[in-house]
Deep mutational scan, measured.
Amino acid sequence: TEDARKEAKKIIDNGGSPDEAAKFIKKYGLSEDQARELVKRAL
């Protein structure tokens, strides 16, 4: 979702790792793979 993508970008912009961002956005109901893909797109 757009919200999850924004959250991921915010985490990374604040110095978080892509892994942290992926873990965080899994709470939106995404699978591990979906979360990682979304983080990649957010970069």
Rank of each mutant, 00 (worst) to 15 (best):
D3L: 14
D19H: 09
I12D: 02
A42W: 14
D13E: 13
G15I: 02
D3V: 13
I12Q: 04
K10G: 06
K10E: 10
D33R: 07
A21D: 05
V39F: 09
A35V: 12
E2M: 09
I25G: 00
K6F: 09
S31V: 00
K26W: 06
G29F: 03
Q34E: 14
G29T: 01
T1K: 10
R36M: 13
E2A: 10
R5W: 15
T1G: 10
R36S: 07
E20W: 09
S17Y: 03
S31A: 03
N14L: 10
K26A: 13
K23R: 12
P18S: 06
R5Y: 15
D19T: 09
G15Y: 03
G16Q: 05
N14G: 12
E2K: 08
L43H: 06
D3E: 14
A22M: 15
D33H: 09
D19I: 09
A22W: 11
E37C: 12
E37D: 09
I11A: 05
Q34A: 10
A8D: 02
K23Y: 11
F24G: 10
D3Q: 14
E37M: 04
K26F: 07
Y28V: 00
K10A: 11
A42T: 11
E32H: 05
Y28W: 08
F24D: 05
I12L: 15
V39R: 01
G16M: 09
R36I: 12
Y28E: 03
A8S: 05
R5A: 14
A8F: 08
L43R: 03
A35E: 03
I12M: 12
P18W: 11
A8W: 09
E20K: 02
V39D: 02
R41H: 13
F24A: 15
I12S: 04
F24V: 11
L38T: 06
L43Q: 08
A8G: 04
E2R: 09
E20N: 04
S17K: 04
R5N: 06
K23I: 12
L38V: 13
E20R: 04
G16Y: 08
A35G: 02
N14T: 08
G29M: 01
E20H: 05
L38P: 00
A22S: 06
R36A: 09
A42G: 06
A22C: 05
T1H: 14
K40T: 11
D13G: 07
F24T: 10
K23N: 14
A8T: 03
G15P: 02
A35Y: 08
A42L: 15
Q34W: 05
D33P: 04
R41S: 14
